[in-house]
Design a protein around this nucleic acid. Structure first.
Length: 586
RNA sequence: GGGCCCUUAGCUCAGUGGAUAGAGCAACCGCCUUCUAAGCGGUCGGCCACAGGUUCAAAUCCUGUAGGGCCCGCCA
């Protein structure tokens, strides 16, 4: 909504510049930005300073000449010139009221879908078969889901892909080990749970690292599997199914949808990847391995670094799989934008793989490839997040703990306030708040930096947390219950009239949703949406504190009800794009 | 040796060219006969790591330095 206001102001300023200084300046950018302080109005045009040298005049004089030609009276109060030559613009109340009215009648809250919808692939989560999901998967899963949700809302055709680690040497050792110690686990399904599997995996890994004979047998098992032996194949299938069921439990809890397309999917395509690299002349043999030498990457001796696409033992590795995936995603899926959500440590790998794909001519110019990196999850000591005994934290345990703590907080509050609530209510609120807190804590940080994980901070009842935002939403629902208000039926003549400064602040913020979503769409930074929603909640709480709603006289009462309704709808939509569900009461 | 990222208030972090750098937490002081005080207001707190450069304008862009993290040939 405010995007259109900016566009109109931009055009008007450009016209004024031309009127003042002639057609030579037709393409001048008015440098129109939001102000950082309400006392300077809503927007400021900074163009006068930038033109000073070119026009050989003082910025303030230039600003005056522009303002003399500027006609924005239908949108703004009279422009003011301040400081060295800023042109300050303040939107009129009537114009804001008009915009708010439009937003309220629009199920998309004034956010227009993209005019150039794309086919987008979001590659995220990607746990490994036969291993538990742990904190390391948390960020990819949560950030990827949110980015996918925003892009879907913006009208793009999004394919959410789970590139699970379901292939490779680990299956050789796992199958070999299980044949010896627990054969029933790989002959029929449902015999062992993932916890057992993880233990077996650990044992297998240890044997693989220390026992040469075992290592050899495991290698043979890999070959067997790759050759399609029915028995090995079945074992592999069972292991995958078992893990898949466990992953699904986590995804269900997190309310995340994702399509599995694991590494094994690309298996049949790998030989052609190498073959085509050879045909393109990029492939070289080095120390028995098939490699492509990279441009701009050097090893310790200063020689070009190779990307290995076929190991000396003839096997393929993750680089090969990723190359096959890039090719499949551009050529079969016809993706316009491919987004990888992985930790920052893989930045080199992706740059390298993409370089090779590009040099091989597999990626059209029009396709945007983007690695969305994120930092490590650290404990409160700043070190890698571990349990007290030094183990990796299982995602399941992490979520359980968040919900448990959220439940304890809630029960204490109920006791203090002498409230009686059903077990069902307690369970639902604890789960939504706990899971929401985990998600919000992660999403609200700039993802590129490391992230210090703290239950206490994420579940804090005040500050930039999920509970704070959820509470703002609940407050609106409280008004609706108390006043028996149907927000969808406020009457034909319902109008917004802005009076108090908190009403103006809230109204202007509400109208910025479209800009924020456009930013997230291009920058892929969900923390901007978090920041927006947090500020919205703050502005709502300020309004709530200053302006009584139900006790107000008409037409103020209806106007304020509309502001409440818009706030709630915006919070609900925004939170849903973060993958967080709201509550009616808490 | 090479590459990527980070360094902003006591703590956790926003802020990728515009006015006196912002939140939250922590500390201290106020505000519930009134829609859930899980709230609101206020006080305190910063050579934006350092040094140069570009610009009318730099926390923001460029170069260099220091400190921290991560990655770098057959794991993913």
């Amino acid at each position: 909504m405010m995007k259109s206001a900016i566009a109109q102001l931009n055009t008007a300023l450009q016209q004024a510049i031309v009127k003042a200084f002639g057609p030579d300046l037709a393409d001048t950018d008015p440098i129109l930005v939001s102000t950082n302080n309400p006392k300077f109005g809503d927007y400021q045009a900074n163009v006068a300073m930038s033109l000073a040298r070119q026009l050989k005049d003082k910025p303030r004089a230039i600003a005056e000449k522009i303002v003399a030609q500027l006609d924005v009276s239908h949108l703004c109060k009279p422009p003011e010139i301040a400081g060295p030559g800023f042109i300050n613009l303040t939107l009129k109340a009537e114009y804001l009221e008009h915009l708010l009215r439009q937003v309220q009648q629009d199920p998309r809250l004034g956010v227009e879908p993209s005019k150039t919808p794309q086919k987008v692939i979001v590659d995220f989560s990607s746990p490994n078969i036969a291993k538990e999901m742990h904190v390391g998967h948390l960020r990819s899963t949560i950030i990827g889901d949110s980015i996918a949700r925003v892009l879907e809302f913006q009208g793009h055709d999004v394919l959410r892909l789970n590139h699970v680690g379901d292939w490779g040497t680990q299956f050789g050792m796992l199958i070999t080990h299980l044949r010896q110690v627990c054969p029933e686990a790989i002959t029929s399904s449902g015999q062992i749970d993932l916890g057992d599997l993880v233990v077996f995996y650990r044992q297998a890994k240890q044997r693989f690292d220390t026992d040469e004979d075992f290592k050899e047998t495991a290698r043979e098992a890999v070959v067997e599997l790759q050759a399609g032996s029915p028995e090995a194949r079945k074992a592999w299938q069972i292991l995958c199914d078992q893990s898949r069921q466990e992953f699904q439990k986590i995804y269900d809890r997190l309310d995340i949808e994702i399509d599995e397309r694991g590494e094994s999917f690309y298996n049949p395509l790998l030989p052609n990847v190498v073959k085509d690299l050879k045909a393109s002349g990029l492939l070289e043999t080095d120390q028995g391995a098939e490699v492509v030498f990279l441009e701009g990457f050097q090893n310790k001796a200063g020689k070009p670094l190779p990307l290995i696409v076929r190991k000396s033992d003839g096997g393929y590795n993750y680089a090969t799989t990723d190359l096959a995936a890039i090719r499949y995603r551009t050529q079969q899926d016809k993706a316009d934008r491919i987004i990888y959500i992985t930790d920052a440590g893989q930045a080199n790998h992706f740059t390298q793989v993409f370089q090779v794909a590009q040099r091989a001519g597999w990626v059209p110019e029009s396709v945007e490839w983007v690695h969305v990196p994120f930092g490590l999850v650290q404990g409160e000591d700043g070190k890698k997040f571990k349990t007290r005994s030094g183990e990796t934290v299982r995602l399941k345990d992490l979520l359980d703990e968040a919900v448990r703590r959220s439940r304890t907080d809630l029960e204490q509050r109920l006791a203090v306030e002498n409230r009686q609530e059903s077990q069902d209510f307690i369970q639902t609120v604890a789960a939504r708040v706990g899971i929401g807190a985990v998600k919000y804590a992660d999403l609200s940080q700039n993802r590129t930096s490391n992230y210090i994980f703290s239950y206490d901070k994420m579940l804090a009842l005040q500050g930039n947390t999920a509970p704070y935002l959820l509470y703002a939403y609940v407050r609106v629902q409280g008004i609706s219950r108390k006043g028996d208000i149907d927000f969808d039926d406020l009457g034909e003549n319902a109008r917004i009239h802005l009076g108090d400064e908190t009403e103006f602040a809230l109204a202007k913020h509400l109208l910025q949703l479209d800009q924020i979503l456009a930013e997230v769409e291009s920058d892929l930074m969900p923390n901007r949406l978090c920041q927006y929603l947090f500020e919205l909640s703050q502005k709502f709480n300020q309004f709530y504190d200053r302006c009584s709603v139900l006790q107000a006289n008409e037409p103020q009462r209806t106007s304020r009800l509309m502001l409440c309704d818009l706030t709630a709808k915006t919070l609900k939509l925004g939170l849903s794009l973060l993958g967080i569900q709201v509550l009616e009461r808490m």
